[in-house]
Design a protein around this nucleic acid. Structure first.
Lengths: 184, 184
DNA sequence: TTAATCATGTAACACGTTACATGATTGC
DNA sequence: GCAATCATGTAACGTGTTACATGATTAA
């Protein structure tokens, strides 16, 4: 589980509203964690309930009220505990509907499978160009911005994962297409 | 969602008990879909309830009764519908606790991160040798076994995914370690 | 004698998705 | 005039995890 810790992590840097947090997830972090507002608000309520966050309402003219969340000491501790417990082996336990379908595909429609693999390649290529854009953006941050300077390295590493993963997805799909064509 | 469809797919070939199905998942399919018995039995009950499966009890001497599940026509249809609706783009929406932690790691313990990345490389190497074993096993199936001959190709493609993924994981981790060492 | 295997499940909780609901403001 | 953005959420359902429960047999 991580959405709650992600919320704590973002609020650790800046007090924000649920809406703003949602945008950070669905813009900057969406390639490794996407969310719906329903979950954001539920988890924020639960974090507030357990004393990891507090909130203040702020009125706005002509717009709905804002509810700004602030991390507490307890929240900071919880976040730090989570952060320093690195165990990446768990991340290898993935579920893949795609592989499940392919596993059963001797009963399936081969032409559709081929079409879908080609589409998969296209989508991965799109991802690659998006990653490239973001990578360029990061490089152009001002060097004298200390906070960015430190976190940039880690941002780079996460982006690199996306890039390498997309490249490997494409390699796999190409080789799979070759296997499928071979035995006709 | 796929566990239910996976169960239908396995029962499509062979009537089996929940226990046997669980073993297939946790032995042959575990690298793309792992399960607990609690979920297996719940989903079997739900599939039976919706008319996709039927079951018969079989007594055994000295062992608990077996409850063997059989797929129905309705179940076959449902499985087929699912199978032929290929959309692999969805599979690109993954969540990664690992990347989330790295993203926040300017607040974290760098030494632990490095250690964990090295461990990640080890685990991926272990996976690679497992994949190799299974791949050899598949190659040595008798060629005159028609069923295996057809499904082997698809089994190969799923294994190839595992292999390429592990290789790319290792590449990423190595490059990440390099990035982390660079700025000291 | 201890652990593993066979074989069934229940209960409670955590996390994720889909659909619905409200209502003003701003840009095309 | 219509869609998007701002901003909050609720309800219901689906899926995954953890812990618990039973009880005989067999292999180390």
């Amino acid at each position: 589980m991580s959405l709650k810790h992600g919320l704590l992590g973002l609020l650790n840097d800046d007090p924000q509203t649920g809406y703003e947090l949602m945008k950070v997830f669905n813009n900057s972090l969406q390639f490794f964690w996407s969310v719906q507002t329903s979950q954001i608000y539920r988890d924020l309520a639960s974090l507030e309930n357990s004393g990891c966050l507090t909130s203040r309402k702020e009125e706005q003219s002509g717009k709905p009220d804002k509810k700004i969340y602030y991390i507490t000491e307890k929240g900071k501790e919880k976040f730090q505990l989570w952060l320093n417990e690195y165990d990446f082996s768990k991340s290898l336990k993935t579920r893949s509907t795609m592989l499940m379908k392919i596993f059963f595909s001797n009963n399936g429609d081969k032409e559709k499978l081929i079409k879908s693999l080609k589409e998969y390649i296209n989508v991965n290529n799109q991802f690659l160009s998006e990653y490239k854009e973001v990578a360029d953006y990061i490089k152009n941050f001002k060097l004298n911005d200390d906070i960015c300077h430190n976190s940039r390295k880690y941002w780079e590493i996460t982006l690199l994962k996306g890039k390498i993963e997309s490249e490997s997805n494409i390699q796999w799909a190409l080789q799979s297409l070759a296997i499928l064509k071979k035995e006709e």
